[in-house]
């Protein structure tokens, strides 16, 4: 089988994971102007919740997602209500610090509840190898790619056509103006957290199915962050696309050059792109009149 195609196919798989996680980051940033540094921990926590659901109720993948996503959205809403809402109007730096504190808490709580041992999360999905045009995949890998495509399409449609999506864009564009036309900024913020947590559930479950469930899963949040920067912090679809780009670059650089280049190749690309487009590939250029 062609080495290049193999690297591309597996690059798409890890890129899809990065993209799904990055979309959650971008969604909260777009609506609230805050980088949620606890997003990686939400990805981990929701994956563990899904693991417990499969252990207790023996749910297969689709029912599992139908249960896990709403639970995650409620979790996101709760966290926003308890930790973020009281900070409304405070400097962004303070809110970011709250998310960092929240991240540490979520990491601790996860290990306290589920322990440090790693687990397999299969959710009834076959472990047989499936060949697509001769290229081998596990079913969960194909599901990751499909999930990114579905979430990207739904995300685009949501922001473009739905009332909440449009109000979210309005808040992101000009918070005061949005308030003046009757949009509830706090409700929009809460909705962003809920949707972002829903995306975290999709990302977390699929990542755990492909790469095992362990308490260091939160680290994927940091690994996905370059995709958010590359795509443009305020571009949800850009983050998804950039995740795929980072995944492909990582795999190709490791495959052809190797010796750990995977870890730095994404950052090299980001530095180059940001030097040319400081607002990312798809981010909005921020113009201030002085």
């Amino acid at each position: 089988m062609d080495f290049f195609l193999l690297l591309i196919s597996t690059g798409l798989v890890i890129g899809a994971s990065y993209g799904l996680i990055a979309m959650g980051f971008a969604l909260v940033y777009k609506a609230t102007g805050v980088v949620n540094f606890a997003h990686g921990e939400l990805v981990m926590l929701t994956a563990y919740i899904a693991f417990s659901l499969t252990q207790i109720f023996g749910l297969s993948f689709i029912p599992l997602m139908l249960v896990t996503i709403p639970i995650s959205m409620v979790l996101g809403l709760t966290l926003e209500r308890i930790f973020i809402r009281p900070m409304l109007g405070e400097p962004v730096f303070s809110i970011v610090m709250v998310t960092i504190g929240l991240a540490v808490i979520l990491r601790g709580v996860t290990i306290m509840i589920w322990g440090p041992d790693p687990h397999n999360l299969t959710a009834g999905v076959t472990r047989d190898v499936i060949r697509v045009f001769g290229i081998p995949f596990y079913a969960a890998q194909l599901m990751s790619i499909a999930a990114l495509a579905i979430c990207t399409t739904l995300g685009w449609a949501f922001l473009r056509f739905s009332r909440i999506g449009i109000s979210m864009r309005a808040v992101a564009s000009h918070e005061t103006a949005a308030l003046l036309v009757g949009i509830s900024v706090s409700r929009t913020h809460a909705m962003a957290w809920a949707l972002s947590s829903g995306l975290a559930a999709v990302a977390g479950v699929l990542f755990a199915m492909n790469f095992k469930l362990a308490p260091d899963l939160w680290f994927q949040g940091l690994k996905s962050f370059p995709a958010v920067i590359l795509g443009g912090l305020d571009s949800i679809l850009g983050a998804a696309f950039a995740g795929v780009i980072i995944g492909l670059i990582e795999n190709l650089s490791q495959g052809y050059i190797g010796q750990g280049l995977r870890e730095i190749s994404g950052f090299i690309v980001i530095i180059i792109v940001l030097m040319v487009r400081p607002y990312g590939l798809f981010g909005d250029r921020d113009i201030e009149r002085v």
Binding site: F3, L7, I14, F219, E250, L252, Q254, Q259, G260, R262
Partner: peptide
């Protein structure tokens, strides 16, 4: 001989190299 960073999850390119 392939090296990787501690904490790596995705080994697809590395294993493809071994296979090749």
């Amino acid at each position: 001989r392939i090296r990787f960073k501690k904490g790596t999850s995705n080994f697809s390119a590395e294993v493809a190299q071994l296979d090749r």
